[in-house]
Design a binder for these strands. Structure first.
Lengths: 220, 220
DNA sequence: CAATTTATGTCAGTCCATGACAGATGACAA
DNA sequence: TTGTCATCTGTCATGGACTGACATAAATTG
């Protein structure tokens, strides 16, 4: 890796660290991009060359998460029942996240504190999950042997399990700043969701097809 | 109702109509607040006295939806099983929405077209649903006789059903601009979710309590 | 009509974000 | 080492979303 790339990487990290330092001290909203740039001795314009927006910086970790979760699902054995594969994948994701966080506890804690102080960020991060859910839906549809464009069931399955994760994270705001608590809460809601779902529903053995009306198929 | 209030109401409607007209013609992003204000012959400053933001205007209907859905749940009979009440409430909500839309088809269609052209708005509207979900959770917890602060099950139940609705709406973007199709799609996913959930899970008869670790209860 | 309340317009200013251009700096070959 | 090239960076200018402060105009009330 050349000097240039090293410097870039360095600047990127400095921006994140500087930003979270300020977020922590004065809050997310109250911190301006100019302040962050100044703290790292970089022009405000450069900030936007590294991050598309202030929010992008704050939620940077989500793109890493997307890779972790889609990768985890893709790695599940082919012969595993789809729903089981999905739950396993999410569990593995949590533990991958846990290991990452342990390697870098300091950043993890700062991150959590900022989100704790501004839960809207968490909400937004899950809204951004939409893209990830699409990827997961495609893979689930493949495993279920159905077409995600006309059959909403894989999409629904992904949405149901994802919302369980979401609840787990939300439960961990306001007080539960610690990694273990977070992981425990997410695992908890995941298990509850597993119990709440009817086993074998992912097998698509139900009589009715999942066809959904669209403009093309039902102009009514 | 005095003249003053009538004028205010009138201005509000004019702003919405003017805005959606422009959104439809040039897109949501491409339309500036100044343009909207100019179209209604009002100062841009006044726009922000009626709507907190451009997004607030575009998603104004969501607050009405919140009232519809929470009201529908509150109106369900006390002796109905909680989960059943929740599903019924959502079905009623859909049909209330349907009736409202039929009364004012023109606005409804414009609205749909704008959201169709800008799915980010739809995503945001669901992100805003978070507040509604909280209200629903409180009511569900009451019906289940449990404490929403420590027991994640009511929260999870609400999240699961809500995500089914979300999928229904999402299926209706890109093509399904018609009211009937939308309603049919949402009903469809709602029914699928009903089938996917294990009956009686809402009765809380499971052995394990739903206790979630918090900083207080598990300083881990 | 007079006094009070409230909505609106104007103005100035902050913040987020982006395009254009020029200068600095690392990469790389001769 | 040196010169070329690609790329990163700072500076400047701009636009759009939003807000606070203050004056004005309009409606309400008596």
């Amino acid at each position: 890796m050349g000097l240039r790339e090293r410097k870039k990487h360095q600047t990127r990290l400095a921006l994140m660290d500087g930003a979270f330092e300020l977020f922590l001290a004065q809050g997310y909203e109250a911190t301006t991009v100019d302040q962050i740039a100044a703290a790292v001795d970089v022009s405000p314009r450069t900030f936007f060359r590294y991050f598309g927006s202030k929010e992008d910086l704050a939620l940077d970790f989500t793109v890493e998460y997307e890779e972790l979760i889609t990768g985890a699902l893709a790695a599940r054995p082919e012969d595993e029942p789809p729903l089981e594969a999905l739950f396993h994948a999410f569990r593995e994701f949590i533990h991958l996240m846990e290991r990452n966080a342990e390697e870098d506890t300091e950043r993890f804690l700062k991150h959590r504190q900022v989100i704790d102080a501004n839960p809207a960020l968490l909400t937004t991060s899950f809204a951004r999950m939409a893209e990830t859910e699409k990827l997961l839906t495609v893979e689930m549809a493949r495993r279920q042997g159905t077409d995600p464009a006309t059959d909403p069931r894989p999409r629904l399955l992904v949405a149901l399990v994802t919302s369980a994760i979401r609840v787990g994270f939300e439960c961990s705001v306001d007080g539960a700043t610690h990694l273990r608590t977070l992981v425990a809460n997410v695992e908890r809601t995941l298990t509850l969701a597993e119990q709440a779902l009817r086993p074998g529903w992912d097998q698509l053995s139900l009589g009715s097809s999942g066809q959904v009306a669209t403009k093309a198929s039902s102009p009514g």
